[in-house]
């Protein structure tokens, strides 16, 4: 499947911690250039799936195949942590924001471009003596950072410590930082958590922009149904580590199994969100 339609193919993925099965025989695929949402009640194993895809956990069994548009394929379960980001070009954000809080906003975005800058600096040696090629690469890196800061409206705060930004800005900065790593697949772990309605609307636009302009596929964990229903092309529902539904947002919304899973748990807010979306 040469640069086919699917960017990520997850086949029979299982992850267990001791006796606990966090993810059980999960198979799904994410379309290239699409926004795929992974939803489910708390503790359904969504973040575990993310951690497997991005290499923080080694799955107990299963296969995860990622295909670049050029046709190169990567078996993610065989790649060692940082290589997934470096070679397979999967970038991610975290549920609890993980910015480099003591570094400036700009520095955060430059760290994300570590690998290209590292080779431009001749693995530090050329950079140490001020090799012009490196200076050029650094300028390009700053320009890229500037571009993303413009997009997220933080250009004025480029020299402030990332830890000093308000919460919503930190969320956006984390996405921008992931984008600076030049991914083909962007995995977002609850990007709308803690945002107000206006902010999550802006987030929708931003994600649409990333997908539309930069042709980056997005895999998304989200509880905010307004985000999920509005922007995702495809929704996968997990419950107790198993997939219970898989389809378009509209189909998912009417799926009795999904409704049962949500109403069956005590997470009322989520249930309400589904009801609202139904109306």
């Amino acid at each position: 499947m040469n640069g086919g339609d699917t960017i990520l193919d997850v086949v029979h993925l299982s992850m267990r911690f001791g006796g606990i099965v966090a993810v059980k025989d999960l198979s799904f695929s994410a379309r290239r250039g699409g926004i795929t949402a992974l939803i489910g009640p708390n503790g359904a194993g969504k973040t575990t799936v993310f951690n497997c895809i991005t290499g923080f956990y080694k799955p107990t069994t299963g296969m995860m195949r990622l295909g670049h548009a050029g046709g190169r394929e990567f078996l993610l379960e065989r790649l060692f942590d940082f290589r997934i980001a470096k070679l397979a070009r999967v970038a991610r954000t975290f549920q609890n924001i993980r910015l480099f809080s003591g570094m400036t906003v700009l520095e955060n975005l430059l760290v994300a471009q570590h690998n290209p800058l590292m080779s431009a600096s001749g693995y530090t040696l050329l950079g140490l003596v001020g090799f012009p090629g490196y200076l050029h690469a650094e300028r390009a890196a700053i320009d890229l950072a500037r571009y993303w800061l413009d997009r997220i409206g933080l250009i004025e705060r480029a020299d402030d410590a990332a830890g000093n930004l308000p919460y919503g800005d930190q969320r956006r900065l984390e996405i921008a930082r992931a984008m600076c790593a030049d991914p083909v697949l962007l995995c977002l772990d609850e990007p709308a958590a803690g945002l107000n309605a206006q902010e999550s609307g802006a987030l929708n636009d931003f994600l649409q922009f990333i997908r539309g302009e930069h042709k980056v596929s997005i895999l998304l964990i989200e509880h905010d149904m307004s985000v999920v229903m509005e922007i995702s092309d495809h929704v996968i529902v997990l419950d107790y580590g198993e997939k219970i539904a898989d389809g378009s947002p509209r189909a998912i919304r009417d799926d009795p199994k999904v409704i049962a899973a949500y109403l069956g748990v005590a997470d009322e807010r989520t249930a309400e969100a589904i009801m609202e979306a139904d109306q």
Partner: peptide, 26 residues
């Protein structure tokens, strides 16, 4: 000098958050 090079920034980033570093391919 090193602080202004990618390696120095990666050191400081490592001090700040190792997991985020790995997620960025470092």
């Amino acid at each position: 000098r090193l602080r202004r090079l990618p390696i120095g920034r990666a050191w400081e980033a490592l001090r700040e958050d190792e997991i985020a570093c790995r997620s960025l391919g470092i």
